[in-house]
C-alpha cells in the first residue's frame, strides 16, 4: 500500500481495488450503524410516544421474502441446454426473512454487548495503570501486582463470573439496591458481568501496559527527577503519557477480545448479543443462519473498534514516538529524511 496515509480498516479492505474498497467499507459502516442507531432510537424513543412500528417490532414485513423463497423452492431454471437448480435463491430469501425477524433482537443484544465491553474496558484501564506501575516501579511490592495478574489470568473467565454470580453474596447486595432493574438501570446480573470483565480485563491490560512502561527509556524518568519531580510525578507526567501511546495497539487487541468474551455474560443470564441470538436459535432450530447473522454483528462491532482505535492512535501520535505510519527503514518506500536520520 503505497498510500502515505493508511486508513485502518478501509485500507485493509482496499487492497488492489483501492477505489472501490474504501467506498464499500464506508457504505457497510453507514448501513451497520444506521441500522443500530435507528433501531435503538425507535425502541427507546419513538415507541414510547407511539410513533413507528413499536419497540422490538420489524420495520419491514418478512412475508414477501418468505413468499419469494417458497416460489424458488425446488425449482430449476432452464437456460438453453443448461439446467440450473435454484434452491440457493430460496435459502437466500429465507435468510433475509429471518434477518428481518431477528434484527430487533440482535440490535437490543448489541447495545448490551457494547455497554458491557465499553464500561468494563475503561474501568479495567483505571485499575490496570496503577497495577502496572506497581509492577514495574513497585520495588519490594511488585509481588502484589504479580500475584493479582497471575491469579486472574490463570483462571478461566467463566469460572470467575460463576464465582461472582453464585459463589459470593455480591448478587444479593446488588439486588437489594433500590434502583437496580428499574427503568434504564439493568438487572444485577449485568452489574456482576461488568465487575467480572473489569477485573479480568484489568489483569490482561496490566500486562500490556507493563510492556509499554518498560519500553519507555529509563533516562526519561531520570531526567524528570533531575528537575525536581518526585518519582510518582515523573511517572505521571513523563512516563505514562508515552506508555499509553505505545500501548494503544496492544490495548486494541484487548478491546477486540473483550467484545467477543463478553458473550460469556450470557451464561449468567445477561441478555447480551450471544445470549439473545442463542435463545432464538434454540427455539427456532435455525442455528446456522442465526449464528451467521450473529457473527456478522460481532464483526461489525470489532471492525468499528479497531478502526476507532486506529484513528485515536493517529490523533495522539507524536513524531518520534511509536510507529503509526509503519516502519520505513528496510522497505522500498524508504524516504529521504529517514535515510538521512539513520545515516
Amino acid at each position: 500500500m503505497s498510500d502515505s496515509s493508511p486508513d485502518g480498516v478501509r485500507d485493509r479492505l482496499g487492497g488492489s481495488s483501492r477505489r472501490i474498497g474504501p467506498v464499500l467499507a464506508v457504505l457497510a459502516g453507514v448501513a451497520f450503524w444506521g441500522w443500530l442507531l435507528t433501531r435503538w432510537f425507535n425502541d427507546w424513543v419513538l415507541a414510547r410516544v407511539g410513533v413507528g412500528p413499536g419497540a422490538g417490532e420489524n420495520y419491514l414485513s418478512p412475508a414477501p421474502f418468505e413468499a419469494a423463497a417458497e416460489t424458488f423452492e425446488g425449482t430449476v431454471a432452464t437456460v438453453g441446454p443448461v439446467r440450473l437448480p435454484m434452491n440457493w435463491l430460496a435459502t437466500l430469501f429465507d435468510g433475509v426473512a429471518l434477518a428481518i425477524d431477528i434484527a430487533p433482537i440482535l440490535a437490543d443484544g448489541a447495545w448490551n454487548t457494547i455497554v458491557l465491553t465499553g464500561v468494563s474496558i475503561v474501568l479495567g484501564l483505571f485499575i490496570a495503570v496503577p497495577i502496572a506501575v506497581l509492577r514495574v516501579y513497585g520495588g519490594p511490592f511488585r509481588w502484589i501486582a504479580l500475584a493479582y495478574t497471575e491469579l486472574i489470568r490463570g483462571t478461566p473467565l467463566l469460572a470467575q463470573l460463576f464465582v461472582l454470580y453464585y459463589g459470593l453474596p455480591l448478587a444479593v447486595w446488588i439486588n437489594d439496591l433500590e434502583m437496580v432493574g428499574r427503568g434504564f438501570v439493568p438487572e444485577y446480573a449485568f452489574w456482576i458481568a461488568i465487575i467480572g470483565f473489569t477485573i479480568n480485563g484489568s489483569a490482561y491490560q496490566t500486562e500490556y501496559i507493563r510492556g509499554a512502561l518498560e519500553s519507555v527509556d529509563e533516562g526519561q524518568l531520570t531526567a524528570a527527577r533531575a528537575i525536581g519531580m518526585t518519582r510518582l510525578e515523573g511517572i505521571r507526567h513523563v512516563v505514562l503519557p508515552q506508555t499509553l501511546r505505545y500501548g494503544i495497539p496492544a490495548w486494541t487487541n484487548e478491546l477486540v477480545y473483550l467484545i467477543k468474551y463478553s458473550s460469556l455474560a450470557g451464561f449468567i443470564t445477561v441478555p447480551e448479543l450471544y445470549y439473545r441470538a442463542s435463545r432464538v436459535a434454540s427455539s427456532t432450530f435455525e442455528y446456522t443462519p442465526i449464528f451467521t447473522l450473529l457473527a456478522l454483528v460481532y464483526l461489525g462491532l470489532v471492525l468499528t473498534a479497531t478502526d476507532a482505535m486506529g484513528r485515536l492512535e493517529r490523533r495522539v501520535a507524536i513524531p518520534g514516538l511509536g510507529q503509526v505510519g509503519g516502519r520505513q527503514q528496510g522497505t522500498s518506500k524508504e524516504t529521504r529524511t529517514d535515510a538521512d536520520e539513520t545515516a
Binding site: D217, A223, I227, V238
Partner: peptide, 26 residues
C-alpha cells in the same frame, strides 16, 4: 541542574513543553 550525555528530552513534549513541565508541576 543536570544535563545528560543521552540528552533525555521528554519525547512526547515539544521543546517549549519540555521546559514548562518542570516550571508548572514542580
Amino acid at each position: 541542574g543536570m544535563v545528560f550525555q543521552d540528552i533525555n528530552l521528554f519525547t512526547h513534549l515539544t521543546a517549549r513543553q519540555n521546559i514548562t513541565l518542570g516550571l508548572r508541576k514542580v
